[in-house]
Computed example of a mutant assay.
Amino acid sequence: MIKIAGRVTMNKAAQTYAKKGWPVFIDTFLDDLTCEVCKVAHKTAADFQRCTCVLCHGVYSATTDPDRIRDMTKYIKKGIICVRTGSASGLVAIEIVPPAGTRSGGHLEKAGLLPNTLTVLDGQVAGYLIYRHPGAGIRIRSGANRLGPGVHVHADGGYIPMPTSRSRKSGQKLAWLGDSPDRAIAPLHPRLLATLRDNIAA
């Protein structure tokens, strides 16, 4: 069991997530940290993924390598720890954004489609419900309002911010429900998986 205890630095928190197999990168409140060389040289997702620069190409720089993570956190002192979602990490996050998301999420919960799972809180009513991705053979597209107004999906091609960072949206410090990232992660409800999946590889 991995817990974040003691004085929590950005590096310590990021390394904790990486040990769970979740690729992390450090975001900022700037639009793009990609260097000018990489902006010119790299044009495709495959290029971005092959790039070895520590901070270039945002989510594509996500890694579980402790040395690269240490370099990221040294370069950006007050960044936002982010975890890549989708098959890369085995995670799908359903984001509830009030006020519309509170109503939409309530309907989903009442229908039994949002089982209890690992949860990141962004304030009192907003947050991210984290579920297991079904695997590399199934693509789940990230997108806003995919499960109703104010209920966004972060999966393949996406990412979510993590504690102990501050939310870009609310400015509040993100926190784990239950104060730990060790809670069991539930699978997506079969009805939600049927709704969200894009295709199954042959």
Rank of each mutant, 00 (worst) to 15 (best):
G150F: 09
H154F: 13
P134H: 05
V151N: 01
S170G: 08
S142R: 12
G158E: 05
P181E: 05
S167L: 12
S165M: 03
S165L: 06
A186L: 03
H133Y: 09
S180V: 09
A144S: 14
P149K: 15
T164F: 11
R141C: 02
G148R: 05
R183W: 06
Q172E: 14
D179S: 13
I185A: 01
H133P: 01
G157P: 04
S165A: 03
R146N: 02
A144F: 14
A136D: 14
I140S: 04
I140M: 06
G158C: 11
G171E: 10
Q172V: 15
H154Q: 11
N145A: 13
S167M: 11
Y131I: 05
D182Y: 02
M162Q: 01
R166G: 03
A175S: 13
L188P: 03
D179L: 07
P181C: 06
P187Q: 09
S180D: 12
R132N: 12
K173R: 14
R132P: 00
S165F: 05
P134V: 08
W176F: 15
A175K: 13
H152P: 02
H189Q: 03
G148V: 10
I185E: 01
L147Q: 01
R166P: 00
P149V: 02
P163T: 12
V151T: 05
G148L: 04
G171R: 08
N145R: 11
R139Q: 11
L129I: 00
A144N: 12
H152N: 15
G158M: 05
V151D: 00
I138L: 07
G157W: 05
L174E: 00
R146L: 15
V153W: 03
A144R: 12
L129W: 08
R139D: 13
A136T: 11
S165H: 05
I138W: 04
N145D: 15
Y128E: 04
N145P: 03
R183Y: 08
L177E: 15
P149R: 15
G135P: 02
A155G: 10
Y131H: 04
M162S: 03
A186K: 06
R146A: 11
P187N: 11
P187G: 03
A184P: 14
